[in-house]
Design a protein around this nucleic acid. Structure first.
Lengths: 232, 232
DNA sequence: ACACTCGGTGTATGACATACACAATCGAGG
DNA sequence: CCTCGATTGTGTATGTCATACACCGAGTGT
Protein backbone atom coordinates (compact mmCIF):
# COMPACT_ATOMS: atom_id res chain seq x y z
CA UNK A 1 0.00 0.00 0.00
CA UNK A 2 1.45 3.36 -0.90
CA UNK A 3 1.22 6.62 0.88
CA UNK A 4 -2.19 7.86 1.94
CA UNK A 5 -3.76 10.73 0.12
CA UNK A 6 -4.06 12.66 3.31
CA UNK A 7 -0.35 12.64 3.90
CA UNK A 8 0.18 13.78 0.37
CA UNK A 9 -2.25 16.62 1.02
CA UNK A 10 -0.32 18.06 3.91
CA UNK A 11 3.19 17.31 2.76
CA UNK A 12 4.81 20.51 1.53
CA UNK A 13 4.10 22.37 4.73
CA UNK A 14 6.71 25.04 4.31
CA UNK A 15 8.84 26.40 1.56
CA UNK A 16 6.38 26.16 -1.31
CA UNK A 17 8.16 24.72 -4.25
CA UNK A 18 7.30 25.43 -7.83
CA UNK A 19 5.30 22.81 -9.60
CA UNK A 20 2.15 20.98 -8.73
CA UNK A 21 1.00 19.73 -5.39
CA UNK A 22 -2.12 18.06 -4.17
CA UNK A 23 -3.03 21.12 -2.22
CA UNK A 24 -2.69 23.42 -5.19
CA UNK A 25 -4.80 21.15 -7.34
CA UNK A 26 -7.52 21.02 -4.74
CA UNK A 27 -7.49 24.79 -4.39
CA UNK A 28 -7.82 25.25 -8.11
CA UNK A 29 -10.75 22.86 -8.24
CA UNK A 30 -12.49 24.76 -5.46
CA UNK A 31 -11.94 28.09 -7.15
CA UNK A 32 -13.34 26.74 -10.38
CA UNK A 33 -16.41 25.34 -8.69
CA UNK A 34 -16.98 28.55 -6.76
CA UNK A 35 -16.86 30.51 -9.98
CA UNK A 36 -18.83 28.32 -12.36
CA UNK A 37 -20.32 25.44 -10.44
CA UNK A 38 -19.33 21.87 -9.96
CA UNK A 39 -19.90 21.01 -13.60
CA UNK A 40 -17.08 23.38 -14.53
CA UNK A 41 -14.60 21.23 -12.65
CA UNK A 42 -12.99 18.98 -15.21
CA UNK A 43 -9.48 17.65 -15.06
CA UNK A 44 -8.68 19.64 -18.17
CA UNK A 45 -9.90 22.91 -16.74
CA UNK A 46 -8.24 22.45 -13.39
CA UNK A 47 -4.95 21.77 -15.13
CA UNK A 48 -5.37 24.72 -17.45
CA UNK A 49 -5.99 27.06 -14.56
CA UNK A 50 -2.74 25.90 -13.01
CA UNK A 51 -0.82 26.20 -16.25
CA UNK A 52 -0.11 22.50 -16.62
CA UNK A 53 -1.37 19.76 -18.86
CA UNK A 54 -4.33 17.64 -18.02
CA UNK A 55 -2.35 14.49 -17.43
CA UNK A 56 0.02 16.11 -15.00
CA UNK A 57 -2.71 16.08 -12.39
CA UNK A 58 -2.69 12.32 -12.35
CA UNK A 59 0.80 12.36 -10.90
CA UNK A 60 -0.68 13.79 -7.71
CA UNK A 61 -4.19 12.50 -7.60
CA UNK A 62 -5.46 9.07 -8.50
CA UNK A 63 -8.36 10.36 -10.51
CA UNK A 64 -11.25 12.76 -10.46
CA UNK A 65 -13.09 10.85 -7.78
CA UNK A 66 -10.20 11.16 -5.41
CA UNK A 67 -9.83 14.84 -6.21
CA UNK A 68 -13.44 15.47 -5.30
CA UNK A 69 -13.07 13.64 -2.02
CA UNK A 70 -10.09 15.82 -1.23
CA UNK A 71 -12.11 18.89 -2.12
CA UNK A 72 -14.88 17.76 0.17
CA UNK A 73 -12.54 17.21 3.05
CA UNK A 74 -10.83 20.53 2.51
CA UNK A 75 -14.13 22.36 2.65
CA UNK A 76 -15.09 20.44 5.77
CA UNK A 77 -12.36 22.11 7.81
CA UNK A 78 -14.04 22.84 11.15
CA UNK A 79 -14.06 26.52 12.13
CA UNK A 80 -12.06 27.57 15.16
CA UNK A 81 -15.16 28.72 17.01
CA UNK A 82 -16.39 25.14 17.11
CA UNK A 83 -13.89 24.29 19.81
CA UNK A 84 -14.92 26.99 22.21
CA UNK A 85 -16.40 25.71 25.46
CA UNK A 86 -20.13 25.12 25.52
CA UNK A 87 -22.73 25.37 28.18
CA UNK A 88 -24.56 22.05 28.37
CA UNK A 89 -25.18 19.51 25.64
CA UNK A 90 -28.12 21.31 24.13
CA UNK A 91 -26.31 24.57 23.53
CA UNK A 92 -23.31 22.60 22.32
CA UNK A 93 -25.30 20.65 19.76
CA UNK A 94 -27.13 23.72 18.65
CA UNK A 95 -23.88 25.46 17.91
CA UNK A 96 -22.51 22.37 16.21
CA UNK A 97 -25.52 22.27 13.90
CA UNK A 98 -25.35 25.94 13.06
CA UNK A 99 -21.65 25.86 12.32
CA UNK A 100 -22.17 22.79 10.20
CA UNK A 101 -24.92 24.48 8.23
CA UNK A 102 -22.79 27.54 7.67
CA UNK A 103 -20.01 25.42 6.21
CA UNK A 104 -22.39 23.66 3.85
CA UNK A 105 -23.95 26.86 2.63
CA UNK A 106 -20.63 28.50 1.93
CA UNK A 107 -20.07 26.25 -1.09
CA UNK A 108 -23.48 25.13 -2.26
CA UNK A 109 -22.11 23.01 -5.09
CA UNK A 110 -20.31 20.78 -2.61
CA UNK A 111 -23.49 18.94 -1.74
CA UNK A 112 -23.69 17.72 -5.32
CA UNK A 113 -20.51 15.71 -4.98
CA UNK A 114 -21.34 12.05 -4.85
CA UNK A 115 -19.68 10.19 -2.02
CA UNK A 116 -19.23 6.47 -2.30
CA UNK A 117 -19.56 5.70 1.37
CA UNK A 118 -20.19 6.99 4.87
CA UNK A 119 -17.95 9.75 6.25
CA UNK A 120 -14.32 8.74 6.77
CA UNK A 121 -12.15 11.73 5.85
CA UNK A 122 -10.12 13.43 8.61
CA UNK A 123 -12.19 16.56 8.85
CA UNK A 124 -15.44 14.64 8.74
CA UNK A 125 -14.17 12.54 11.61
CA UNK A 126 -13.29 15.72 13.48
CA UNK A 127 -16.85 16.97 13.16
CA UNK A 128 -18.18 13.65 14.36
CA UNK A 129 -15.82 13.61 17.29
CA UNK A 130 -16.81 17.05 18.41
CA UNK A 131 -20.50 16.23 18.40
CA UNK A 132 -19.84 13.04 20.34
CA UNK A 133 -17.81 14.95 22.84
CA UNK A 134 -20.74 17.29 23.41
CA UNK A 135 -23.10 14.35 23.73
CA UNK A 136 -20.96 12.82 26.45
CA UNK A 137 -22.59 15.42 28.68
CA UNK A 138 -25.74 13.36 28.39
CA UNK A 139 -26.40 10.04 30.11
CA UNK A 140 -27.04 8.38 26.76
CA UNK A 141 -25.36 5.13 25.80
CA UNK A 142 -22.62 5.24 23.15
CA UNK A 143 -24.97 3.73 20.61
CA UNK A 144 -27.63 6.31 21.30
CA UNK A 145 -25.08 9.11 21.14
CA UNK A 146 -24.12 7.89 17.72
CA UNK A 147 -27.76 7.75 16.68
CA UNK A 148 -28.31 11.31 17.85
CA UNK A 149 -25.27 12.41 15.90
CA UNK A 150 -26.59 10.72 12.81
CA UNK A 151 -29.94 12.39 13.33
CA UNK A 152 -28.35 15.82 13.62
CA UNK A 153 -26.06 15.53 10.61
CA UNK A 154 -28.94 14.29 8.55
CA UNK A 155 -31.02 17.22 9.64
CA UNK A 156 -28.39 19.80 8.84
CA UNK A 157 -27.56 18.33 5.47
CA UNK A 158 -31.22 18.10 4.51
CA UNK A 159 -31.88 21.67 5.50
CA UNK A 160 -28.87 22.88 3.58
CA UNK A 161 -29.88 20.90 0.53
CA UNK A 162 -33.41 22.19 0.64
CA UNK A 163 -32.47 25.79 1.08
CA UNK A 164 -30.01 25.54 -1.79
CA UNK A 165 -32.59 23.91 -4.02
CA UNK A 166 -35.17 26.51 -3.19
CA UNK A 167 -32.87 29.38 -4.00
CA UNK A 168 -31.83 27.62 -7.20
CA UNK A 169 -35.39 27.53 -8.48
CA UNK A 170 -34.36 29.76 -11.29
CA UNK A 171 -37.28 31.74 -12.64
CA UNK A 172 -40.06 31.64 -10.13
CA UNK A 173 -40.09 31.29 -6.39
CA UNK A 174 -41.09 27.92 -5.02
CA UNK A 175 -44.34 29.33 -3.70
CA UNK A 176 -45.33 30.57 -7.11
CA UNK A 177 -44.53 27.25 -8.71
CA UNK A 178 -46.61 25.36 -6.19
CA UNK A 179 -49.43 27.83 -6.51
CA UNK A 180 -49.59 27.08 -10.20
CA UNK A 181 -49.11 23.35 -9.93
CA UNK A 182 -51.20 22.32 -6.98
CA UNK A 183 -54.73 21.32 -7.80
CA UNK A 184 -57.19 21.65 -4.94
CA UNK A 185 -58.97 18.48 -5.98
CA UNK A 186 -55.97 16.25 -6.02
CA UNK A 187 -53.94 17.85 -3.28
CA UNK A 188 -56.34 19.59 -0.91
CA UNK A 189 -54.12 19.77 2.15
CA UNK A 190 -51.19 21.10 0.19
CA UNK A 191 -53.51 23.57 -1.49
CA UNK A 192 -54.62 24.88 1.88
CA UNK A 193 -51.03 25.35 2.98
CA UNK A 194 -50.19 27.24 -0.18
CA UNK A 195 -53.29 29.38 0.15
CA UNK A 196 -52.36 30.22 3.70
CA UNK A 197 -49.47 32.16 2.24
CA UNK A 198 -46.87 29.93 3.81
CA UNK A 199 -44.42 30.50 1.02
CA UNK A 200 -45.04 34.17 0.41
CA UNK A 201 -42.34 35.26 2.76
CA UNK A 202 -39.83 32.63 1.82
CA UNK A 203 -36.59 34.36 1.01
CA UNK A 204 -37.55 37.42 2.96
CA UNK A 205 -35.27 38.44 5.77
CA UNK A 206 -35.91 36.49 8.92
CA UNK A 207 -37.74 33.74 7.09
CA UNK A 208 -34.36 32.66 5.85
CA UNK A 209 -33.50 30.43 8.73
CA UNK A 210 -36.94 29.83 10.12
CA UNK A 211 -37.29 26.25 9.00
CA UNK A 212 -33.87 25.49 10.36
CA UNK A 213 -34.53 27.00 13.75
CA UNK A 214 -37.90 25.32 13.93
CA UNK A 215 -36.59 21.91 12.99
CA UNK A 216 -33.63 22.18 15.30
CA UNK A 217 -35.86 23.03 18.22
CA UNK A 218 -38.10 20.04 17.55
CA UNK A 219 -35.14 17.75 17.13
CA UNK A 220 -33.41 18.78 20.32
CA UNK A 221 -36.71 18.70 22.19
CA UNK A 222 -37.04 15.09 21.15
CA UNK A 223 -33.54 14.27 22.28
CA UNK A 224 -34.10 16.15 25.50
CA UNK A 225 -37.13 14.08 26.30
CA UNK A 226 -35.00 10.96 25.99
CA UNK A 227 -32.23 12.48 28.06
CA UNK A 228 -34.68 13.30 30.81
CA UNK A 229 -36.12 9.80 30.78
CA UNK A 230 -32.73 8.08 30.84
CA UNK A 231 -31.16 10.64 33.12
CA UNK A 232 -32.68 9.61 36.36
CA UNK B 1 -45.79 26.25 -24.62
CA UNK B 2 -46.17 22.69 -25.75
CA UNK B 3 -47.61 19.75 -23.95
CA UNK B 4 -46.37 18.94 -20.49
CA UNK B 5 -44.14 15.96 -19.95
CA UNK B 6 -46.59 14.52 -17.48
CA UNK B 7 -49.34 14.37 -20.03
CA UNK B 8 -47.01 12.71 -22.44
CA UNK B 9 -46.17 10.17 -19.77
CA UNK B 10 -49.71 9.00 -19.28
CA UNK B 11 -50.96 9.33 -22.83
CA UNK B 12 -51.23 5.88 -24.41
CA UNK B 13 -53.42 4.54 -21.67
CA UNK B 14 -54.85 1.63 -23.53
CA UNK B 15 -54.10 -0.26 -26.71
CA UNK B 16 -50.33 -0.19 -26.60
CA UNK B 17 -49.06 0.72 -30.00
CA UNK B 18 -45.78 -0.41 -31.44
CA UNK B 19 -42.97 2.07 -31.31
CA UNK B 20 -41.58 4.22 -28.57
CA UNK B 21 -43.39 6.01 -25.80
CA UNK B 22 -42.27 8.04 -22.84
CA UNK B 23 -43.42 5.33 -20.51
CA UNK B 24 -41.47 2.63 -22.28
CA UNK B 25 -38.33 4.74 -22.25
CA UNK B 26 -38.65 5.42 -18.56
CA UNK B 27 -39.20 1.73 -17.85
CA UNK B 28 -36.11 0.81 -19.81
CA UNK B 29 -34.03 3.35 -17.92
CA UNK B 30 -35.23 1.97 -14.60
CA UNK B 31 -34.47 -1.59 -15.61
CA UNK B 32 -30.99 -0.58 -16.66
CA UNK B 33 -30.31 1.23 -13.42
CA UNK B 34 -31.66 -1.63 -11.37
CA UNK B 35 -29.35 -4.01 -13.16
CA UNK B 36 -26.11 -2.04 -13.38
CA UNK B 37 -26.52 1.18 -11.43
CA UNK B 38 -27.29 4.72 -12.40
CA UNK B 39 -24.04 5.12 -14.30
CA UNK B 40 -25.22 2.46 -16.73
CA UNK B 41 -28.10 4.67 -17.83
CA UNK B 42 -26.97 6.41 -20.97
CA UNK B 43 -29.18 7.50 -23.81
CA UNK B 44 -27.36 5.05 -26.05
CA UNK B 45 -27.92 2.09 -23.77
CA UNK B 46 -31.54 2.89 -23.08
CA UNK B 47 -32.19 3.08 -26.81
CA UNK B 48 -30.29 -0.11 -27.49
CA UNK B 49 -32.31 -1.99 -24.91
CA UNK B 50 -35.47 -0.88 -26.66
CA UNK B 51 -34.15 -1.73 -30.11
CA UNK B 52 -34.10 1.83 -31.42
CA UNK B 53 -31.39 4.32 -32.18
CA UNK B 54 -30.08 6.75 -29.63
CA UNK B 55 -31.56 9.79 -31.26
CA UNK B 56 -35.05 8.34 -31.43
CA UNK B 57 -35.39 8.93 -27.69
CA UNK B 58 -35.18 12.65 -28.22
CA UNK B 59 -38.50 12.55 -30.06
CA UNK B 60 -40.16 11.69 -26.75
CA UNK B 61 -37.98 13.22 -24.12
CA UNK B 62 -36.28 16.57 -24.13
CA UNK B 63 -32.99 15.23 -22.91
CA UNK B 64 -31.38 13.06 -20.30
CA UNK B 65 -32.20 15.45 -17.47
CA UNK B 66 -35.87 15.26 -18.24
CA UNK B 67 -35.69 11.49 -18.51
CA UNK B 68 -34.20 11.24 -15.05
CA UNK B 69 -36.86 13.48 -13.58
CA UNK B 70 -39.47 11.22 -15.13
CA UNK B 71 -37.72 8.20 -13.67
CA UNK B 72 -37.70 9.82 -10.27
CA UNK B 73 -41.36 10.60 -10.41
CA UNK B 74 -42.23 7.12 -11.60
CA UNK B 75 -40.40 5.56 -8.70
CA UNK B 76 -42.12 7.94 -6.31
CA UNK B 77 -45.51 6.40 -6.96
CA UNK B 78 -47.11 6.25 -3.52
CA UNK B 79 -48.10 2.75 -2.39
CA UNK B 80 -51.79 1.97 -1.97
CA UNK B 81 -51.38 1.32 1.74
CA UNK B 82 -50.45 4.93 2.27
CA UNK B 83 -54.05 5.98 1.87
CA UNK B 84 -55.48 3.70 4.49
CA UNK B 85 -57.02 5.50 7.46
CA UNK B 86 -54.71 6.34 10.32
CA UNK B 87 -55.17 6.62 14.03
CA UNK B 88 -53.95 10.03 15.10
CA UNK B 89 -51.29 12.22 13.60
CA UNK B 90 -48.39 10.43 15.20
CA UNK B 91 -49.25 7.01 13.86
CA UNK B 92 -50.05 8.59 10.53
CA UNK B 93 -46.70 10.31 10.26
CA UNK B 94 -44.88 7.23 11.41
CA UNK B 95 -46.45 5.19 8.65
CA UNK B 96 -45.74 7.94 6.15
CA UNK B 97 -42.07 7.93 7.07
CA UNK B 98 -41.77 4.18 6.92
CA UNK B 99 -43.48 3.92 3.56
CA UNK B 100 -41.31 6.69 2.26
CA UNK B 101 -38.18 4.95 3.44
CA UNK B 102 -39.26 1.70 1.84
CA UNK B 103 -39.71 3.42 -1.50
CA UNK B 104 -36.26 5.00 -1.32
CA UNK B 105 -34.55 1.76 -0.41
CA UNK B 106 -36.18 -0.17 -3.22
CA UNK B 107 -34.03 1.62 -5.81
CA UNK B 108 -30.92 2.81 -4.02
CA UNK B 109 -29.46 4.43 -7.11
CA UNK B 110 -32.36 6.85 -7.30
CA UNK B 111 -30.92 9.00 -4.52
CA UNK B 112 -27.94 9.74 -6.73
CA UNK B 113 -30.05 11.54 -9.28
CA UNK B 114 -29.42 15.24 -9.05
CA UNK B 115 -32.54 17.35 -8.88
CA UNK B 116 -32.35 20.97 -9.90
CA UNK B 117 -34.95 22.25 -7.49
CA UNK B 118 -37.37 21.46 -4.68
CA UNK B 119 -40.03 18.78 -5.22
CA UNK B 120 -42.61 19.59 -7.87
CA UNK B 121 -43.44 16.38 -9.73
CA UNK B 122 -46.95 14.94 -9.40
CA UNK B 123 -46.05 12.01 -7.21
CA UNK B 124 -43.84 14.12 -5.00
CA UNK B 125 -46.72 16.49 -4.52
CA UNK B 126 -48.93 13.54 -3.64
CA UNK B 127 -46.56 12.49 -0.87
CA UNK B 128 -46.45 16.03 0.44
CA UNK B 129 -50.19 16.31 0.38
CA UNK B 130 -50.66 13.12 2.31
CA UNK B 131 -48.32 14.18 5.08
CA UNK B 132 -50.02 17.55 5.32
CA UNK B 133 -53.38 15.85 5.50
CA UNK B 134 -52.14 13.82 8.45
CA UNK B 135 -50.76 16.92 10.09
CA UNK B 136 -54.10 18.64 9.86
CA UNK B 137 -55.02 16.51 12.85
CA UNK B 138 -52.69 18.71 14.86
CA UNK B 139 -53.40 22.25 15.99
CA UNK B 140 -50.29 23.49 14.22
CA UNK B 141 -50.37 26.46 11.86
CA UNK B 142 -50.02 25.81 8.13
CA UNK B 143 -46.48 27.12 8.23
CA UNK B 144 -45.51 24.84 11.07
CA UNK B 145 -47.16 21.89 9.35
CA UNK B 146 -45.00 22.56 6.35
CA UNK B 147 -41.93 22.81 8.54
CA UNK B 148 -42.72 19.50 10.16
CA UNK B 149 -43.17 17.92 6.76
CA UNK B 150 -39.82 19.27 5.67
CA UNK B 151 -38.26 17.91 8.83
CA UNK B 152 -39.70 14.46 8.23
CA UNK B 153 -38.74 14.19 4.57
CA UNK B 154 -35.27 15.32 5.40
CA UNK B 155 -35.01 12.72 8.08
CA UNK B 156 -36.20 9.88 5.88
CA UNK B 157 -33.98 10.83 2.98
CA UNK B 158 -30.95 11.16 5.20
CA UNK B 159 -31.53 7.82 6.82
CA UNK B 160 -31.99 6.16 3.46
CA UNK B 161 -28.87 7.78 2.12
CA UNK B 162 -26.84 6.75 5.12
CA UNK B 163 -27.99 3.18 5.14
CA UNK B 164 -27.25 2.89 1.43
CA UNK B 165 -23.82 4.36 1.87
CA UNK B 166 -23.02 2.06 4.74
CA UNK B 167 -24.01 -1.02 2.83
CA UNK B 168 -22.07 0.21 -0.18
CA UNK B 169 -18.85 0.38 1.81
CA UNK B 170 -17.41 -2.25 -0.42
CA UNK B 171 -14.69 -4.19 1.30
CA UNK B 172 -14.93 -3.60 5.00
CA UNK B 173 -17.79 -2.77 7.27
CA UNK B 174 -18.03 0.82 8.45
CA UNK B 175 -17.15 -0.20 11.97
CA UNK B 176 -13.93 -1.83 10.84
CA UNK B 177 -12.97 1.21 8.78
CA UNK B 178 -13.53 3.54 11.69
CA UNK B 179 -11.68 1.25 14.04
CA UNK B 180 -8.67 1.49 11.82
CA UNK B 181 -8.93 5.18 11.08
CA UNK B 182 -9.85 6.74 14.39
CA UNK B 183 -6.98 7.85 16.50
CA UNK B 184 -7.68 8.09 20.20
CA UNK B 185 -5.55 11.18 20.55
CA UNK B 186 -7.24 13.18 17.90
CA UNK B 187 -10.76 11.83 18.20
CA UNK B 188 -11.22 10.60 21.74
CA UNK B 189 -15.01 10.69 21.88
CA UNK B 190 -15.37 8.91 18.60
CA UNK B 191 -12.78 6.39 19.70
CA UNK B 192 -14.82 5.63 22.79
CA UNK B 193 -17.95 5.07 20.72
CA UNK B 194 -16.12 2.73 18.39
CA UNK B 195 -14.58 0.86 21.30
CA UNK B 196 -17.99 0.45 22.87
CA UNK B 197 -18.77 -1.85 19.95
CA UNK B 198 -21.47 0.39 18.61
CA UNK B 199 -20.85 -0.70 15.05
CA UNK B 200 -20.22 -4.38 15.65
CA UNK B 201 -23.80 -5.32 15.11
CA UNK B 202 -24.46 -3.02 12.22
CA UNK B 203 -25.96 -5.03 9.45
CA UNK B 204 -27.08 -7.73 11.84
CA UNK B 205 -30.77 -8.51 11.90
CA UNK B 206 -32.70 -6.13 14.06
CA UNK B 207 -29.96 -3.53 14.00
CA UNK B 208 -30.98 -2.85 10.46
CA UNK B 209 -33.64 -0.30 11.23
CA UNK B 210 -32.54 0.70 14.70
CA UNK B 211 -31.22 4.11 13.81
CA UNK B 212 -34.34 4.83 11.86
CA UNK B 213 -36.68 3.83 14.65
CA UNK B 214 -34.61 5.74 17.16
CA UNK B 215 -34.47 8.89 15.10
CA UNK B 216 -38.13 8.75 14.23
CA UNK B 217 -39.08 8.44 17.88
CA UNK B 218 -36.96 11.46 18.83
CA UNK B 219 -38.32 13.47 15.94
CA UNK B 220 -41.95 12.78 16.67
CA UNK B 221 -41.36 13.32 20.39
CA UNK B 222 -40.11 16.77 19.52
CA UNK B 223 -43.12 17.50 17.37
CA UNK B 224 -45.41 16.12 20.03
CA UNK B 225 -44.01 18.48 22.59
CA UNK B 226 -44.89 21.38 20.32
CA UNK B 227 -48.33 19.95 19.62
CA UNK B 228 -49.01 19.69 23.32
CA UNK B 229 -47.87 23.21 23.95
CA UNK B 230 -49.91 24.74 21.12
CA UNK B 231 -52.84 22.39 21.63
CA UNK B 232 -54.30 23.98 24.62
C1' DA C 1 -52.70 14.70 -55.48
C1' DC C 2 -50.56 17.52 -52.09
C1' DA C 3 -48.38 19.48 -48.31
C1' DC C 4 -47.54 18.74 -43.61
C1' DT C 5 -46.45 16.54 -39.42
C1' DC C 6 -44.68 12.79 -36.67
C1' DG C 7 -41.41 9.36 -35.49
C1' DG C 8 -37.22 7.25 -36.54
C1' DT C 9 -32.36 7.45 -38.51
C1' DG C 10 -27.32 8.54 -39.52
C1' DT C 11 -23.77 11.37 -39.21
C1' DA C 12 -21.04 14.72 -36.77
C1' DT C 13 -19.22 17.48 -32.93
C1' DG C 14 -17.17 18.68 -28.80
C1' DA C 15 -16.43 17.53 -23.97
C1' DC C 16 -14.84 14.33 -20.95
C1' DA C 17 -11.78 10.78 -18.04
C1' DT C 18 -8.02 8.31 -18.42
C1' DA C 19 -4.42 4.63 -20.30
C1' DC C 20 0.20 4.53 -21.97
C1' DA C 21 4.68 5.60 -23.68
C1' DC C 22 7.98 9.04 -23.57
C1' DA C 23 11.13 12.86 -21.77
C1' DA C 24 13.26 15.90 -18.56
C1' DT C 25 14.97 16.65 -14.10
C1' DC C 26 16.98 15.71 -9.82
C1' DG C 27 19.01 13.22 -5.83
C1' DA C 28 21.78 9.58 -3.96
C1' DG C 29 25.45 6.19 -4.25
C1' DG C 30 29.51 4.79 -6.55
C1' DC D 1 32.01 13.72 -11.04
C1' DC D 2 29.17 10.20 -13.15
C1' DT D 3 25.31 7.23 -13.37
C1' DC D 4 21.05 5.17 -12.35
C1' DG D 5 16.59 5.20 -10.81
C1' DA D 6 12.79 7.61 -9.21
C1' DT D 7 9.84 11.60 -9.67
C1' DT D 8 7.27 14.72 -12.36
C1' DG D 9 5.47 16.66 -16.46
C1' DT D 10 3.95 15.86 -21.51
C1' DG D 11 1.62 14.25 -25.94
C1' DT D 12 -1.02 11.25 -28.12
C1' DA D 13 -4.85 8.15 -28.34
C1' DT D 14 -9.15 5.75 -27.07
C1' DG D 15 -13.75 5.12 -25.80
C1' DT D 16 -17.89 7.10 -23.87
C1' DC D 17 -21.09 10.50 -23.56
C1' DA D 18 -25.04 14.04 -24.72
C1' DT D 19 -26.90 16.16 -28.28
C1' DA D 20 -27.35 19.30 -32.74
C1' DC D 21 -28.85 18.83 -37.45
C1' DA D 22 -30.36 17.19 -41.83
C1' DC D 23 -32.80 13.67 -43.86
C1' DC D 24 -36.64 10.37 -44.92
C1' DG D 25 -40.68 7.48 -45.03
C1' DA D 26 -45.33 6.75 -43.68
C1' DG D 27 -49.54 8.34 -42.56
C1' DT D 28 -53.22 12.13 -42.54
C1' DG D 29 -56.23 15.80 -43.50
C1' DT D 30 -57.63 18.76 -47.55
Amino acid sequence: MDESVWERLDRPEKEPKPGLSVRRIVRAAIELADADGLAAVSMARVAERLGFTTMSLYRHVRGKDELLVLVLDTLAEPPATLWEPFDGWRAGMERWCREHLAVLLRHPWALQIQTAGPPTTPNQLAWMDHALRVLEETPLSPGDRMSVLLLCTGFVVSQARFSIEVSAESEQAYGAVLDELVDGERHPALRRVVDAGTFDLAGAAGAQGYDFTFGLARLLDGVERLVERVGR
